[in-house]
Simulated assay, not measured.
Amino acid sequence: MSLSLLFHPFISFHKAHLKLSSSIPTRPISSPQSKVLSIKSLQRAHEQPPPKKPRWENLLSTAASLYPVYVTAGSVLACAKPSAFSWFVSRGPTAYTLSLAFVMLAMGLTLELRDLFRLLMERPLSILFGCVAQYTIMPAFGATVSKSLGLSPSLSVGLILLACCPGGTASNVVTLIARGDVPLSIVMTACTTLSAVVFTPLLTKVLAGAYVPVDAVKLSVSTLQVVVAPILLGTFMQRTFPSLVKMMTPFAPLLAVLAASLLASSIFSENVVLLKSSILSTSAGSGSGPLFGLQGILSGELGIVILSVLLLHFAGFFVGYLSAAICGFKEPQRRAISIEVGMQNSVLGVVLATSHFTSPLVALPPAMSAVVMNIMGSSFAFIWRYINPSDDKNELGS
């Protein structure tokens, strides 16, 4: 969840505009010589690179972009020693809710709403297409995969809830690596996140209501509290306390990434405890040792969860790219839409699952997704990085 790359482009665009404006001479041009000098000064202003960030800010930004590494390492630790996260798990779901709210607050601190609206006006068709794809492709495949694999009601609800979540912020980093349209990815993430207060509860109610009772109103209120309200609070703080926010901004993305990684790893460790107890009971019953018990679990419930999450995200990547290609978008936009559709805000899925459903298994698909999704997305990105886009321009034809 690299928030540094998510909204810093908006801020850099704004600062570049201010710098260019301040470089234009204000006194009238009274001679041909001064006119030549003025033109040269404008050329130098265009040619000058933006001011370099301090080295420590670059290090923080780089560290914040390593979310897939943190969440994978945390999941490995959760498998090896689940008790390492017991201090955080024991404080859930309150700790989970506060962690996600902090992540969204950090997003709001770096979000320039006026630049967001400007980009919305510049490329409405591609943004609208991406948002519609996000809330149609993934929910449809979430319901299809859960039914096709015959998942239990709790796991089906967890997979559908994951599929109905907005795009994940890690998608912006992955799009950058894949040489896709990063501004499009940024705006899609912001739009789907803000609209999650309506679409995530509504779609979950429609698709998962057949398995267990789903209170769409409570889901909507929770999404508003932990997603939309912190983002709006962050933007309010940015306008009201600009000096304080300027001091906090370099640190906020890394702290948010660490909080998201801790949250995903803790939920995963909570389910690992249940799975290990199943392994021990299976191995004791078969008398064949823990290796065969683990094989039985992998071929059973846990294996089915991993397979369902793999299929869901692969469908998002593939169908997202295919639909963008059919609609005539250029290669950078296809990659951005594919990655944005295929990568979900699994942390939101974890928080909603633990807050509104009694079975801990509902949170297992979103927690597993935090690992599987980032590995898949990073793999696709590195493949795409070495395949030149057919059109290097990041301007839409629409």
Rank of each mutant, 00 (worst) to 15 (best):
F317M: 03
G293I: 05
V272W: 06
G328K: 04
A259T: 06
V319M: 07
L310I: 13
L322P: 05
G303V: 03
A252S: 09
P332K: 03
F268P: 02
A325Q: 14
V272I: 12
Q295I: 11
F314N: 10
V272A: 12
S277Q: 13
G289K: 02
G296Y: 02
A256M: 08
L262S: 10
I326V: 13
L298P: 01
L322K: 12
G296N: 13
A324S: 14
L302W: 01
L322R: 10
C327N: 10
L254D: 00
G296C: 09
A325C: 13
S283N: 03
L274K: 14
E331V: 13
V273Q: 07
P332E: 06
L294R: 09
N271K: 10
S281P: 02
S286T: 15
L263W: 06
F268D: 05
P253I: 05
K330T: 11
G285L: 12
V272M: 11
F318K: 01
Y321E: 11
S286G: 11
F318H: 08
S308Y: 04
E301P: 04
G320V: 00
F329K: 00
A252I: 03
A264F: 04
S261K: 02
E270F: 15
S266L: 06
V309F: 11
G293Q: 05
I297F: 02
F318T: 12
I267F: 15
V319G: 06
S308M: 04
Q295W: 12
S265Q: 09
V309Q: 09
I326Y: 11
G293K: 01
P253H: 04
I279G: 03
P290H: 15
V309Y: 06
G296I: 07
L255C: 10
L298Q: 01
L280P: 00
A259P: 04
L310D: 11
C327H: 09
L307T: 09
F268G: 06
A259L: 02
S265V: 12
E301Q: 15
K330P: 08
E331Q: 14
F329W: 12
L255T: 10
F329S: 01
G289L: 05
I267L: 13
L275I: 15
G300N: 08
Q295E: 12
V305C: 04
G316S: 01
L310C: 12
G320Y: 01
K330H: 08
G287R: 05
Q333Y: 05
S299I: 08
A324E: 07
H313V: 07
L258C: 11
L312W: 00
L255G: 07
P253G: 09
V257D: 02
G293L: 03
P332D: 03
L280D: 12
